[in-house]
Design a protein around this nucleic acid. Structure first.
Lengths: 166, 166
DNA sequence: TATTGTTATACTCTATAACTATA
DNA sequence: TATAGTTATAGAGTATAACAATA
């Protein structure tokens, strides 16, 4: 039980075909048994798809997209709630909200009972943008289905969810 | 087929319990069907575990660890091969190798046949460090097994591998 | 002329600490 | 005194383009 999972560690190449034959894939070795390593590699694919489908067309960085989407599904939300859900620091969130507010995508409102707190709400423009971006997310996920079956896609999300639980 | 996977999008809270009762979990909404979002959330867990088990004790950032581990399993490697495997830019790799060379963990040697290229090789110190870090990776992965069964852990790595294929 | 690797520069992102206002 | 949010500053990370050496 001390060792890493053997199958992955001892696995054969399994890896990247490159257009150029001159670049032979490297052995992963013990790295092959480390979830975090594979997570980072997989992120290359998903980030690339994100940028093409949503990031560039809508000029939204990943956190901005996530933030707006959370706002869309949770009507009035405080910054505090958002930074917990998105694992951000408070200063970072302030900057993000500044930018999105200047773009007219959300508004800061006073909290009705607690003067220290705020309510963040989407503007009409923000709502239109998130709806549009949500539509753009469908072909993005469909693109991943060239690598994953639908069942694998669902399974992957489930497993990642277990890893993310607080 | 235009819509995102329904089960996740329509799913109930399912989310983060927090120590403080004042922080109710947010609804994920359409975000719940997006692999990249879950990937980023799961990374919070794995990065945290990495920092505690390897990053801080060995003073190695994630890429540095991956780079050294690839060197350990693939004797002489050119920078070119590494940056393809690690999805890095050439300047970034130069800086990384500079740092690791200054710490005495690897050496740059001349390529025997192609004068433009280099051979990167671990020093004895680099080999000892990677062996030690490899040992430290076992308890790190074991920690994840409080959230995942062993079969799920293996399945997750397999699915992430499919996403990462070039 | 193409390729490997390096240098130089600028830009983005993130983290820490100090500050304001409410409670 | 504690909390929500903001401001200020500095540090790390990353990308682009220009450069040197070799093929």
């Amino acid at each position: 039980m001390k060792k890493l999972a053997e199958p992955a560690a001892a696995a054969p190449p399994e890896d990247c075909d490159d257009a150029r034959p001159g670049a032979p894939p490297l052995q992963l070795g013990p790295l092959g048994g480390i979830v975090g390593f594979h997570l980072a590699r997989a992120a290359v694919t998903t980030v690339d798809a994100y940028e093409r489908h949503i990031g560039k067309p809508y000029e939204l960085r990943k956190v901005e997209f996530s933030l707006l989407m959370l706002l869309r599904s949770n009507s009035p939300v405080s910054p505090k709630q958002l930074l917990q859900s998105l694992s951000l620091t408070a200063p970072k969130l302030t900057i993000l909200v500044d930018g999105l507010e200047q773009r007219g995508l959300l508004r800061r409102e006073r909290h009705p009972t607690d003067g220290r707190s705020r309510h963040l709400v989407l503007t009409d423009r923000g709502r239109r943008l998130t709806d549009s971006a949500t539509a753009a997310a469908s072909p993005m996920e469909l693109e991943l289905l060239t690598r994953l079956t639908r069942a694998e896609h669902a399974m992957l999300i489930e497993l990642l969810g277990k890893l993310a639980e607080r």
